[in-house]
């Protein structure tokens, strides 16, 4: 437990500094813990494993989009748990499951188990992206899917470099909202 925290926190700090490999590792390792956490919670209240996967991805997106709110002086586990639980409560509210069904839990629960099963969520990111405004779509596709640099993406989309950054960020936020709407229905 302690080593997980220290290791993940180190990766997180590197990720905050812009290290893509650490970012990838920390998100991947958190997602397997989140999967175990959400499956445990949702199966107990009679929801499916694919819904758990939707939630895993919502939480991973939230962790990515809100990573600037992690205070490096604090442990990582409570921060991840707060986001994971917030998304769980939000999911339960919007899918109208009785609120009393979500048991109180401890921050360490979110790091307690790994689940590496290779599940898929119920939505398709490419399809959701079609619903984004043109600039956001182009910027995300260029930077996040094709891995172009900001300058290359700017040329491709006819935007300024800061325009690309803004559109990627707003686009991911909008995607997170679309995903949440998708899992409601």
């Amino acid at each position: 437990m302690k080593t997980t925290e220290a290791e993940l926190r180190g990766l997180m700090l590197a990720a905050l500094d812009g290290d893509a490999a650490s970012h990838r590792t920390v998100l991947a390792r958190l997602s397997s813990r989140l999967r175990a956490y959400y499956k445990g919670k949702l199966l107990r209240i009679g929801r499916s494993a694919s819904e758990a996967e939707d939630l895993v991805q919502e939480a991973v997106l939230a962790i990515h989009l809100k990573r600037h709110t992690y205070n490096p002086d604090e442990p990582l586990t409570p921060w991840v748990h707060a986001i994971a639980r917030y998304k769980l409560v939000d999911f339960v509210r919007r899918t109208r499951t009785s609120f009393a069904d979500v048991p109180i839990d401890d921050a360490d629960d979110v790091m307690a188990h790994d689940d590496h099963s290779d599940a898929e969520s119920s939505y398709d990111i490419r399809r959701l992206m079609e619903r984004l405004p043109k600039n956001m779509q182009c910027a995300i596709e260029a930077v996040k899917l094709d891995g172009l640099s900001t300058a290359e993406a700017a040329r491709k989309c006819g935007l300024s470099e800061s325009g690309v950054k803004v559109n990627v960020h707003r686009g991911l936020k909008t995607l997170a909202v679309l995903i949440a709407q998708e899992t409601k229905s």
């Binding site: 990838r24 991947a28 990111i125 930077v143 891995g147």
Partner: peptide, 22 residues
């Protein structure tokens, strides 16, 4: 979509963030 793919998308070309922003 696979979660792994989402993680890949999110980790491509990331920017450093400033935790003092909040």
């Amino acid at each position: 979509m696979k979660t792994e793919d989402l993680v890949t998308v999110l980790s491509t070309r990331i920017e450093p963030v400033n935790h003092r922003m909040v």
